[in-house]
């Protein structure tokens, strides 16, 4: 090792460069975002996912749901012809992906600060899941979909996740968690702990709290966009 110092400096330089280019600016721009304290009821938002839901996040990562589903509601305004006139519309809002139907909103950077891993995703083969918790009434509906998506949506592209469930003989009474799906006589289909965690995670996915400061900055009358001729 003749050039130890040069090697060390070279390696340090390469790491410092990528750190300076990717980590430092991002941290500078977003690192100060903290939980928002509601001035009225003093609650903190966003709150951390409860234990089971946090475990479900790991299952979500494990099963690669992120390859087909995004978790980011965008506020993009497109225009289209409607009755001969150009009208503005927001595709994500129109698909009811934006949480509260009365006050739809995009995903803000702050929404993700409590996530251990951020599953933004890139491909939308399936619907955006950032607010999926507002669309499903309970875990049973989710189990049904995960067990066999094709039974919910005909020819669905989503792969069945039947391996998250267990078919077992009914001992004594039927389990309260048993799925309403066809099972062999005397048997029932029940979710495994992984399925339960995943469902808890999905039901917890909802950004319903609207941060006043963000709302104020992101509001833009659609007329202004039409004027801007996009």
């Amino acid at each position: 090792m003749n050039n130890g110092l040069a090697l060390f400096l070279g390696v340090a330089g390469v790491f410092a460069f990528s750190w300076g280019a990717f980590i430092l600016p991002a941290h500078w721009q977003l690192g100060r975002l903290g939980q928002y304290r509601d001035p009225v009821d003093e609650t903190l938002h966003p709150s951390a996912a409860p234990g089971l839901a946090a475990q479900g996040g790991e299952v979500y990562a494990d099963l690669g749901c992120v390859y087909c589903h995004t978790q980011q509601v965008r506020q993009t305004t497109l225009t289209r012809l409607k009755e001969g006139k150009r009208a503005a519309f927001n595709p994500d809002f129109e698909r009811k992906w934006a949480g509260d139907a009365n006050q739809p909103r995009p995903s803000y950077a702050r929404d993700y600060i409590q996530d251990r891993r951020v599953f933004l995703g890139q491909v939308r083969l399936g619907p955006d899941l950032r607010n999926v918790g507002t669309r499903f009434p309970d875990d049973q509906a989710l189990y049904k979909l995960l067990f066999e998506p094709q039974a919910v949506t005909k020819d669905s592209l989503m792969p069945p996740h039947a391996f998250l469930f267990e078919t077992r003989p009914i001992v004594g009474e039927r389990s309260a968690k048993a799925l309403a799906v066809p099972a062999p006589p005397g048997c029932e289909v029940v979710p495994t702990p992984r399925a339960e965690a995943l469902a808890a995670y999905l039901l917890n996915l909802k950004d319903t709290y609207d941060y006043p400061e963000e709302r104020r900055r992101n509001m833009l009358p659609s007329a202004a966009i039409l004027e801007g001729d996009r």
Partner: peptide
């Protein structure tokens, strides 16, 4: 060289086209 790169990053970050962490709407112009 390192100092220049660092200063450039800081400068870019600071003037990132009016980047605002609270804005998600791409049509909003600060």
């Amino acid at each position: 060289l390192i100092a220049v790169l660092l200063a450039a990053t800081l400068y870019f970050t600071h003037n990132a086209g009016g980047f605002d962490p609270l804005v998600a709407n791409e049509d909003v112009c600060p």
